[in-house]
Design a protein around this nucleic acid. Structure first.
Lengths: 212, 212
DNA sequence: CGCACAATTCAACTACCGTTGAGTTAAACA
DNA sequence: TGTTTAACTCAACGGTAGTTGAATTGTGCG
């Protein structure tokens, strides 16, 4: 079992090089469009070596996604402090993730989740169990309303990340974090804590849909 | 030039059948993942016939995207009426598009824009010139703030559509339109008309980013 | 009828894709 | 030195992609 003879892990750089190439390629193209061959080429390596290290494309993706921002460390920082500013702190923490080393795998996960059911489930479970549930629990939100509030928050954060980092819609793409914090923070605050049904939609205010 | 002999456009159904198959396939899988071969199979037709009619996959996509909800007809309905309810009417009109015949190509465009730069530009220009600009003009928004307000609106609407129709995040995916109108409408209203810089972010309220 | 021409199909080309298995190289130990 | 073992390469497999050009079908017209 504990045989320790034979060639040592000669060049441990290679594994990390492949992982880095995988992260950027997945981020640029998403899971489906990123090919193992392209990743291997970026890493300057034979495609078969990727399989040698990671076994399959799925496992490579999982390995590349490891060590995104650990929510267990970020979430408490959001919760601490004035409850009225949780919305702003949430947006600030969210934005700062993309400028950190975790930003690349985050974009990768985001891009992939749209066209790949498997990665979509990955993102969904990560968001709900690691981020939304702790925040909603901490705020003592009515459990009957928590799912709607949580998915509203997720929809705005998702749209914000998409506009800023995937679609690159200006001026959101280049805006200072402070601008987005003061703009979107109150939205988060409202989704989290303000009464949602208190103000029902104005009576008969809907626009008639196109005929069909 | 004006020779009119030979076989007539024998079965004009076929072209429409292919277009319909293209729309649903693009909507289900997005531009990249939708194959001409799959579209042809859905239409019960040879892949080469698709090229015969549409020339290339790009042109087929453009043809399939034609006749989404004509914004020239929808936008005025949003603008008419109480300016304080424009947010709600905007969300209502937006939601109703997806339940109309235009919903299928809309989902297709949405899905494709994420992983394909070409379709992303298509969606971006459609949104800004056909929807956001008219609304902002009508509201006499400060031109210096209009782009930010417009892209904030777009980010929330985009996130809403994604959550509801692509990621199918519950309970947004199954919520009644009225629920979403009363929840998201005020957000739109605020992005469009409320002072954005009036309340700067609370001083030093940002969460420290992960080191890097 | 038989010609013209659109509708439609067939087979094939090139180009990638993920994956596999066998083969080569070289570093560490006995 | 020689064995062991991991690092790494090569060539190929079966599959799917968009696209192409030649061949076939069938209908209307002179």
């Amino acid at each position: 079992m504990a045989r320790r003879i034979g060639r040592r892990p000669g060049n441990p750089d290679t594994r990390a090089t492949i992982l880095a190439a995988a992260r950027t390629t997945f981020a640029e193209r998403g899971f489906d469009q990123a090919s193992i061959r392209a990743i291997a080429a970026t890493a300057g390596v034979d495609p078969a070596l990727v399989h040698h290290y990671f076994g399959s494309k799925d496992k490579l993706f999982l390995a590349a996604m490891n060590a995104p921002a650990d929510p267990a460390k970020v979430v408490p920082t959001i919760l601490a402090g004035d409850p009225d500013q949780i919305g702003e702190r949430l947006v600030g923490a969210f934005l700062s993730i993309w400028d950190s080393p975790a930003g690349t795998p985050a974009v990768a996960l985001l891009r992939s989740a749209v066209s790949n059911e498997w990665t979509a489930r990955l993102l969904r479970e990560f968001l709900t169990t690691q981020v939304l549930r702790p925040v909603l629990d901490h705020l003592d939100v009515d459990p009957a309303q928590a799912p709607l509030r949580g998915s509203l928050v997720a929809s705005q954060l998702f749209g914000l990340a998409m506009a800023r980092h995937v679609l690159r819609l200006e001026p959101i793409a280049s805006a200072a974090p402070e601008t987005l914090i003061s703009s979107v923070g109150p939205t988060m605050q409202r989704y989290l804590t303000a009464p949602l049904e208190g103000q029902p939609p104005h009576r008969r205010s809907r626009v008639t849909p196109p005929e069909g």
